[in-house]
Design a protein around this nucleic acid. Structure first.
Lengths: 149, 149
DNA sequence: TCCTTTTTATTAGCTCAGCTAATGATCTAT
DNA sequence: ATAGATCATTAGCTGAGCTAATAAAAAGGA
């Protein structure tokens, strides 16, 4: 029973891993149209939806080191998609906010990206779609947890 | 109904996208122990399991341009994980095969990577695991299809 | 209060993935 | 025999990711 269960977990893990790799590679093409790549879109998305946020917290959310996030954010700032403002209470930290342009661009890019994915998903049967829908909810609840690896 | 369905597809797509990004970021850490990153492991995996394969076909399988694959393969060859041999019938092409060392390394790396994922998955309820298992099968059937984007 | 320690972000410097454009080498077809 | 197509590589770029070192600000203890 225990053995049986572990084998299933590993098979699932294996195929999940492969799926994730190929999924992201396909999405690169859709993302290209926005002028932003997936790392930047993902960061911008957090800034847009998680309101003003410090660089450190954003790096944590994106599971990336601060220097990496500094560069991503600088690229976004150079395109006037986000603004960096020093915090009044703690001047070591900066608050990142999306500009109107940033919000608009994100929503457009997201539509493109999501639509290209959705087009694939739409091929599936309603039942398969339901399964997928439930599965990604589960995955994202995992991703939201503190790193247990 | 049609609208309803499309909205669901997009929501699923959205959250699938985010899940894939964060999943791969977590796996980077597990992969680090092998000395190979996910692009190289993925390529090596195809070479190991899809037998001798040409560079072009491997690039297609990995959804990457030939120059990118040349470099990945060269790195693998430099570590004696794969061998490149000119085809007898068409000397423009090369046949890529995994060495014993390559096969061994892949299997070990895969165990580590998969185990770290499986550890996360094991937290889930049996029912959640079943859902996930079915969903990744669906995803991989999508990935296997010719690009419909 | 002053000095040390801790925290936050940045800079510097590296590896490596991804791309396009240009080349070289071989095959194919006229 | 030669012109065109195909396969891989090289060159040269952008950008993600890392660690180590630095700067600047906050927090805390003597």
């Amino acid at each position: 029973m225990s053995t049986r269960k572990r084998i299933d977990s590993e098979a699932t893990a294996e195929s999940l891993h492969s799926a994730a790799i190929h999924l992201l590679r396909r999405l690169r093409h859709a993302d290209a149209a926005s002028g932003l790549n997936s790392a930047r879109l993902s960061a911008l998305s957090v800034i847009v939806f998680a309101g003003p946020i410090t660089l450190g917290r954003l790096a944590d959310a994106e599971q990336v080191r601060p220097p990496t996030m500094t560069r991503i954010v600088n690229a976004l700032a150079a395109k006037s998609l986000v603004t960096k403002t020093a915090s009044a209470s703690d001047r070591r930290t900066i608050h990142l906010s999306a500009t109107m342009k940033g919000k608009r661009l994100l929503l457009q890019a997201r539509r493109r990206r999501i639509r290209s994915l959705a087009r694939q998903i739409a091929i599936l049967s309603p039942h398969e779609q339901k399964t997928l829908h439930r599965a990604v909810a589960i995955l994202n609840s995992l991703a939201a947890r503190p790193v247990t690896l």
